[in-house]
Design a protein around this nucleic acid. Structure first.
Lengths: 224, 224
DNA sequence: ATTACTAACTTACGAGTAT
DNA sequence: TATACTCGTAAGTTAGTAA
């Protein structure tokens, strides 16, 4: 029997990367994240393992574990079910047309200060380029209103000023996690947005100019 | 504080339509669906109400309730979070149509040098035949880009040349581990791939030409 | 029928601690 | 440091039943 607490723990482990590969963690780490005791974390991990939702190896140096096929299936069907239920009231989606940018975004990505911020947001380093999209101005405004931005404050050096940014966690075409970047002051014309991502989105989705991509809002799970 | 049991109950109520409108139900109905007692259902409903995740009115004739804005927000961000986790972590899937091959793959499987390589990849000896699949060229390209190939270098004897191969660990139809084989130089037309497996896939899944199979990328766990 | 109170029960939790 | 055992206790659940 799979309980909702199991789903919760599985979800936490998935967020830590246990779907893609084996992860190393400790029961006290888990206990802090889920606000339970170390002992309970240990017990619940063993419960997941006995249900074969994860495979784990414990030692006095910590726990190595990964989510099994069965465990992923459980998460996936939970997600699918929830998706189906919420289908009528899903988070807003936005579509954009690929456009050739002026390269403003690339400039940001390459700046060390912005770069480390992006790294935190994406939980992985950013591809050295951005995808420029032309959206409907009003749809964009509405879309962003529904979102919670991450804010980068901006700063000044003696030489120049680095403007503030807002970024929004999104999923591109339903499968690639990315971030929508809105510079506080931009030279873009209205409706043009920039997407940063760990991968080259143009390549991944074989996008030429005017190709349409779908941008979906997500919670930045944990966030920064 | 919102617990995972709350999410579960909210999800159940949402499934019954409590997002869109007010619904009429009873605590014993709920108790049956969630496999808890009538008393617990009653208590948990009151808990949701006191968190203002639902608004409810109870009487000796049953309960009328609807999910509040706050409750919907809770469900939505849970969904969004899960989606975000799965979107970035889920291995890509590819579908292909069964097609009659020219038997090129079978030739490879029967060659001792290739054969022992396949044995390592599959962790079991390969069935003496391949499954030919027609895929969408672009989807295939995308699929393979996300994967880490195992590489067989190829070699020459005085008599002939054995070309290099790339193989990718996959799962067919969600249950049969197999390998997708991409010869470096192939006579196949674009989009056609070959699958080798420890078993006869056509037989196992009763596949006729044009049947659709699902190919899922997996980590080659350990690998070679 | 219902909901929901009280009391008995059972399960899950976490502090302490062995390994 | 870890994991994970024991065990007293707290929390959650259910049976019985009043309203």
């Amino acid at each position: 029997m799979v309980f909702s607490t199991d789903i919760d723990l599985l979800k936490h482990l998935a967020a830590k990367g246990a779907i893609a590969s084996k992860i190393s963690t400790t029961t006290s780490d888990i206990s802090k994240s889920l606000a339970i005791s170390q002992q309970s974390a240990s017990r619940r991990i063993r419960a997941l393992a006995s249900e074969e939702l994860i495979s784990s190896y414990s030692s006095p140096r910590g726990i190595e574990l990964s989510i099994t096929e069965k465990g992923r299936g459980v998460l996936q069907s939970y997600l699918a079910e929830l998706k189906g239920i919420m289908a009528s009231k899903l988070p807003p989606k936005l579509t954009g047309k690929v456009t050739s940018g002026v390269g403003e975004g690339k400039y940001y990505v390459l700046q060390p200060n912005y770069n480390s911020y992006f790294k935190k947001i994406l939980k992985s380093s950013a591809y050295a380029g951005t995808l420029n999209l032309l959206t409907e101005e009003q749809a964009l405004r509405q879309f962003l209103m529904a979102a919670t931005p991450n804010i980068f404050d901006g700063f000044e050096t003696s030489e120049r000023t680095f403007g503030a940014l807002k970024t929004y966690s999104v999923v591109i075409n339903g499968e690639q996690k990315a971030a929508l970047v809105m510079p506080e002051r931009t030279t873009h014309k209205k409706g043009v947005i920039e997407i940063i991502s760990p991968v080259n989105l143009r390549k991944k989705f074989s996008l030429n100019d005017n190709a349409v991509v779908e941008i979906e809002l997500i919670e930045s799970s944990g966030g920064i």
